[in-house]
Design a protein around this nucleic acid. Structure first.
Lengths: 258, 258
DNA sequence: GCCGTTGCTTGATAAATGTTAAGCGGGGCG
DNA sequence: CGCCCCGCTTAACATTTATCAAGCAACGGC
């Protein structure tokens, strides 16, 4: 990888607390690759040889069944993906494709497994990372099973707002078609959901969304720290655990990116 | 714990490959507890101090939002739960309650974290376990987002059949109300889904279900190794990775228990 | 045995979501 | 410029799912 990328990768929770030796050994054989937009990096069912690190661009993780497809997560820099398959040396359960021109660092799965076996600190870091990913998926499932489409969108917008500083204006980071798949609905339905939120002060203008009546929107959305990973819990004790893995859990499915 | 329980716990993938020393240290302070049916072991949002191991009975993991609730998984012996929260020393994202009188082994979270830090083999075993759990949830989400209610039920039945030997008669292991929550539908809808499957040779008689026209049912269900974790993949190479963690991923949400 | 309770089913109706089709507007390209 | 393609929206309609209400059968307690 390029010298300028090293600090970014080193700062990932997975590597932050690891010795130089292990870090260098794992990333020593890694290589950086550039992909155009709309390129499939990995097809579900395929064996997985590399851990992927998104250094620039956007990558969508998707699943398929019977010529339907859905988006499980959208990753933005700096994030890793398919760690679980690497740890188990198993086939991918989801496909990965670039949404825009992207720079991806590819790290040997063998190297990762070997380093885990020899360096307990690294193995623990991987376990913590996986735990964060796992909890992200639990949140996603709760979001999906417990909320309706409009509620999911409302919470997505509030999460987006929380992540981008808290202004009344947020910028949708993806095409609406992609957002719809992420939220588990059709594009048509997303349009209608936005229309419904008009009654709660939400004004859409292309990718720009103004959250007029925040209070109303929050009353509808009812964000919950056990689903949405932002917003207050009683006293803000130990919101740290999940926060540590944000960089990877970034932009997770269901719009409740951690 | 009781001497008779040791081999069961030792056989868990999490502990199978670990040294006696680590195993004894981790389980040394563990204690066995019996709970009546319908007892809450853990409430979502609470801090998690123990890793739980179901030695007997049934435990339901559920999530709540806005006076709705859903079932994320149902665990039967021998399984562990909330490992991810233990690794991160974080609050629980889901509640756990017994469905029947159950025997639960409770292992100190501190002990587990300490052992991981000192024993790379154990840390790797935990990482592998977490990876399996993660992949289980990916399957659950795909099942939930890509399939309709009837399809989920059909696949649940086929998975159940695969797990219980393959006869034409399967026995539902939970109340139908619980099954409905697991499959992400109302009890009323589960009834109707069973009625629909009548056209595919499914005959229900209390907890007993006869799968008459298997071929028809499979054509409807279209089980997929990337969702359902049973059934053939092309050449059956390396179905091992996920299989290693079955004992824990047992009876996972969505009916596609691995 | 009778009588509640409980779990399940069924039906009628409403709400949410998907489908199909058409139209609108902006950006790129000839 | 003008045209076409694409992403998005809107509308009408179909399907699925939830909700409300009633009924039925099994079970346990009195």
């Amino acid at each position: 990888m390029r010298p300028t990328d090293t600090p970014k990768v080193r700062a990932l929770p997975m590597f932050a607390s690891v010795s130089d030796e292990t870090f260098n050994r794992v990333t020593g054989t890694a290589y950086l690759q550039r992909f155009p937009a709309n390129t499939t990096l990995l097809l579900e069912g395929d064996p997985v040889d590399f851990l992927y690190v998104v250094l620039d661009g956007q990558v969508e993780l998707q699943g398929t069944w019977k010529d339907k497809e859905t988006t499980l997560a959208i990753l933005r820099p700096v994030s890793t993906f398919i760690l679980a398959a690497i740890v188990l040396d198993a086939d991918a359960l989801m496909s990965a494709r670039t949404l825009e021109r992207s720079e991806i660092l590819m790290i040997s799965g063998d190297a990762i497994r070997a380093a885990m076996a020899e360096d307990a600190r690294f193995a623990v870091a991987v376990a913590r990372e996986l735990s964060g990913c796992y909890r992200g998926l639990v949140r996603t499932i709760k979001n999906q099973k417990l909320r309706g489409g409009v509620e999911r969108l409302a919470n997505y917008l509030l999460t987006l707002r929380a992540k981008t500083g808290g202004g009344d204006l947020v910028q949708l980071p993806h095409e609406k078609r992609v957002l719809a798949a992420l939220l588990g609905m059709t594009p048509e339905n997303l349009s209608r959901a936005f229309a419904t939120l008009g009654g709660y002060g939400v004004e859409v203008n292309g990718a720009g969304v103004r959250l007029g009546k925040l209070r109303d929107l929050e009353r509808l959305a009812r964000p919950d720290p056990l689903i949405d990973n932002h917003a207050p819990r009683g006293l803000n004790l130990s919101a740290e655990a999940d926060a540590e893995i944000w960089s990877t859990e970034y932009q997770r499915a269901g719009g409740r990116a951690p």
